[in-house]
Design a protein around this nucleic acid. Structure first.
Lengths: 134, 134
DNA sequence: TGAATAGTTGAGCGCATATTCAAATAATAT
DNA sequence: ATATTATTTGAATATGCGCTCAACTATTCA
């Protein structure tokens, strides 16, 4: 119906500040990179996963130990470890029927600590985006 | 029914490695801190918000210009800016009916660039957690 | 005053996903 | 072989949330 991508709401004629729009378009992260980057933060955006990271920071642990330390079901933890495994946040080695998980990457720890740093400095409101609580 | 917090699935007697569990419990991020920290990463976990950050990195822009540069509706962008405002990622000043938004915090940019850094080094699979696409 | 413009906001849709529950798998012990 | 133990997995449930649409506010212009 329309030759361009835009809905009626979008001022694609670059409303008030055409030059600024042009500049902004150039330096904007493209959708692909933005999606990739968002995925990194996404994995870090869950309290359980963050707690798992904090626990694994000092070395490997079996699933049961993680679950126990967090007072969560083994199943819930295993699900999370799976996501973290796919995201290459953790790796594991098997010893008999026991799986020992550890952090795969130190980049993750850097992001983690930088996040904590941010937390201690700025005090953002706690009401922003409410995480799921059961 | 039970005196402790656990479901049947949780081995609260600290199954195989009791000492490790004890240690882990001590160094684990508490739920509150984890929730706070997760909120920070949460705000950074959306492609649109990341693109807005990348656009505002060089200076303030009005809502319409942001929307135009991203080829998105003003409404969608405004909703996101609201979230970012509440999370203290951006601030704005009004000039007549025009609202100029800018980054509120350089911590954010640090996290942003660190994330990009992570992206360039490790190559995580793109199939992990799929963000909403319309 | 009335029309146009910049932006905000609330409801609603649809999808993503954290946890639970139950069942399955695999290794070990009896 | 059977039972137990450590972990995984799939379905179901519930909640979170990004975007759209429509309505609204506020400012400027005629």
């Amino acid at each position: 119906m329309r030759s361009t991508i835009h809905q009626k709401d979008v001022c694609d004629v670059a409303c008030i500040h055409p030059e600024a729009v042009e500049q902004a378009r150039k330096r904007a992260l493209d959708s692909l990179a933005a999606a990739d980057l968002s995925r990194i933060f996404q994995v870090m955006s869950d309290p359980t996963r963050l707690r798992i990271i904090s626990i694994l920071a000092d070395g490997e642990l079996c699933v049961c130990a993680i679950a126990s330390a967090l007072s969560m079901t083994v199943s819930a933890v295993s699900h999370q470890l799976r996501t973290m495994r796919i995201a290459q946040l953790v790796k594991y080695r098997k010893e008999g029927r026991i799986a020992f998980y550890s952090l795969d990457d130190d980049h993750v720890l850097k992001l983690f600590t930088q996040g904590l740093d941010h937390l201690s400095h700025s005090q953002a409101p706690r009401t922003t985006i409410n995480k799921r609580k059961r």
